[in-house]
């Protein structure tokens, strides 16, 4: 057994209670949703909360609703349910594909959207047992001062390793956060920061309550994930792509995000890829090449960094290729 450290457990049944509890309990409190990220990290001594506030009983966070303008997904919606939801598949394919690619089937039955959005960053020098980290001499994300990825690095470069983040970013999703100060909305693309220690703008006492994905006609999206096995693995790289076409079927807008690089998923800038008459092949190639130039995988996830860099092109091309290829409804 990897014994869990001692903590107190709280089971609020309303969002209001949960928000109040988080404020009251302060820094020593952590939220637990599906537990598939937090509990292994606690078993490794990476997180040592005094209180766990469980969102499992907060029913209002589980809904998936389609309005005229948005697809709204509650933070406690299970990844497996999102992946299989017909409206998500229809309006937010990248998210459906991303949630279907998380971990293994059990993780998707247990894991939630909010939990995946807030997944802690990962690094081969961090996601290890206490014994292993002690033998290493610890690292700057936890218990130590040195970074083992970037020699003499002062900033943690642990990698954003969730699959939903890039999908939500390309879908222009908005995340809703509830805190004692009220509710605020943050664009998914502004939710992540480059700090590997805490890579989101969520304050410790805030709760991600939902993701709102705007509906847009002519929009098509896709997601690709690089991993060594067909299941269980975290991404070695992932990419989400979205293509908007206007009424004439002409591509008006493209968004590509690549993640599992460092702490923040990377939006790919491909100035000019759309600025002239281009074929889809050229568009895809333009983005793939731009991504290749802009993304430099680190040894935070594995040592095959050259291969992963090559694969940036492949995952971008495959995601964008699918997003651009099919005709929008």
């Amino acid at each position: 057994m990897l014994p869990l450290p001692v903590f107190q457990h709280h089971s609020p049944t309303t969002l209001a209670d949960a928000v109040a509890l988080m404020a009251e309990l302060g820094d020593g409190a952590r939220l637990i949703a599906g537990g598939t990220d937090l509990l292994p990290n606690m078993k490794h001594g990476l997180v040592e909360p005094e209180h766990l506030v469980s969102l499992a009983g907060v029913r209002e966070l589980r809904t998936i609703v389609l309005t005229d303008e948005h697809l709204e997904l509650g933070a406690m919606a299970r990844l497996a349910d999102i992946a299989a939801h017909p409206e998500v598949v229809r309006h937010a394919a990248a998210l459906a594909e991303a949630t279907a690619a998380v971990g293994g089937p059990h993780h998707r039955r247990m894991g939630t959207l909010g939990g995946n959005v807030c997944l802690d960053t990962r690094c081969v020098y961090f996601n290890q047992t206490y014994f292993w980290r002690q033998a290493l001499g610890f690292c700057l994300k936890k218990d130590g001062t040195a970074c083992h990825v970037v020699a003499s690095g002062k900033n943690c470069v642990a990698a954003a390793s969730n699959d939903s983040g890039p999908a939500l970013m390309v879908l222009d999703a908005e995340l809703e956060l509830a805190g004692v100060g009220g509710v605020r909305r943050v664009l998914a693309s502004e939710f992540y920061t480059p700090d590997g220690i805490t890579n989101t703008v969520r304050r410790a006492d805030e709760i991600v309550t939902k993701a709102r994905i705007p509906l847009k006609s002519g929009r098509k999206s896709a997601f690709e994930k690089l991993r060594r096995r067909g299941a269980i693995d975290y991404p070695l790289l992932n990419a989400a792509a979205r293509v908007d076409r206007d009424r004439a079927g002409v591509i008006a807008n493209v968004e590509v995000v690549v993640s599992a690089l460092a702490a923040r998923p990377k939006r790919i800038k491909a100035q000019g890829a759309l600025a002239r008459e281009v074929s889809i092949e050229a568009l895809v190639e333009g983005y793939a090449n731009a991504a290749f130039k802009q993304c430099r995988p680190l040894t935070n996830l594995d040592n095959d960094t050259e291969w992963r860099r090559d694969m940036v092109k492949v995952v971008v091309a495959r995601a964008l290729g699918r997003a651009a290829a099919a005709d929008p409804e």
Partner: peptide, 24 residues
Amino acid sequence: NTAALANTAALANTGPVAKTAAAE
């Protein structure tokens, strides 16, 4: 080449894209 990278048969059938503004 990219078509091989994308490994997507559908790519071959798509036509040119009209002039648009870049996303960024």
